[in-house]
Nucleic acid binder design. Structure first.
Ligand SMILES: [Mn+2]
Ligand SMILES: [Mn+2]
Ligand SMILES: [Zn+2]
Ligand SMILES: [Zn+2]
Lengths: 133, 133
DNA sequence: AACACAACTAATAATCATTCTAATTTAAAG
DNA sequence: CTTTAAATTAGAATGATTATTAGTTGTGTT
């Protein structure tokens, strides 16, 4: 059980028990959607409000403590901010995995063939995980 | 003004005036979200229902006539199905552009470093378009 | 350790987004 | 031209997210 108090404060967020539990849940599960976060936090905070989940997710995103990952045909999941990486999603079981790839060559190619100045590349692979194929 | 009657039928969709207009709108604008489609169709069909937009979007996606593109910090946009491609989104003006890139090397790399069987790669670049930078 | 206060939480109301229902209309096959 | 399954519409219903408000708490300061 990690202690995220300092990390939260470093992002200008008060270290409330609810926020610490969101951080721990994302640390343990890697990625979770709104409903999963709510269900998990309900176990520890019997009377937590969904509004608290939403409010904290939004604030934590604003302060770059967490990030949203948009997934084809599924609800967004959230994760602790870490080094830039891409995602693999299993179409069957919904499992989400991280993968670190060097996308600079692709970004450079894209920048050379358009007039865009690119500063982010969100890449999501869809397919079947080992268990499901 | 393209005629999408046959293309709709090829996708097992009746060629209703509303659907033809959705097809034309996407053909002309490239990408549009639900609200933009509704506003555009309202000009031609004064009493069109939002339910018609949603119902058709869903059915057209099921039948692979159109596709959804999920975009960071914005509503999804929809586009006519065409050759696989990636997207560039301007953070400032929201403009969405297509870009065709060969992602096979990246996919192969991903498949070799995980146990996933990958069959799709959704890539969205974020940055500033020429006008906005 | 106690204080002060801005920030936070919980309840719930309000709003926004999407889907459902049922009556009417229509595309297209024969 | 008829027939009929499917589509459209209006509006109700549901689901998701945000806003409001009153009471509570984390944290810097004394
Ligand atoms: Mn991740
Ligand atoms: Mn496109
Ligand atoms: Zn799987
Ligand atoms: Zn722009």
């Amino acid at each position: 059980m990690n202690n995220f108090t300092d990390l939260l404060r470093a992002h200008n967020l008060k270290a409330t028990p609810q926020r610490l539990e969101i951080a721990n849940t994302l640390y343990n599960q890697g990625h979770a959607n709104v409903e999963e976060l709510y269900d998990t936090l309900l176990k520890k905070f019997h009377s937590i409000s969904l509004a608290t989940i939403y409010k904290n997710i939004n604030l934590m995103i604003e302060n770059a403590f967490i990030q949203e990952v948009k997934i084809p045909n599924a609800k967004s999941v959230y994760e602790l901010t870490k080094e830039t990486h891409s995602h693999l999603v299993c179409k069957k079981c919904g499992n989400v995995e991280d993968i670190t790839l060097d996308l600079r060559p692709v970004c450079d190619l894209a920048m050379h063939s358009t007039e865009f100045q690119i500063d982010k590349a969100d890449l999501v692979f869809s397919g079947l995980c080992k268990k499901c194929q």
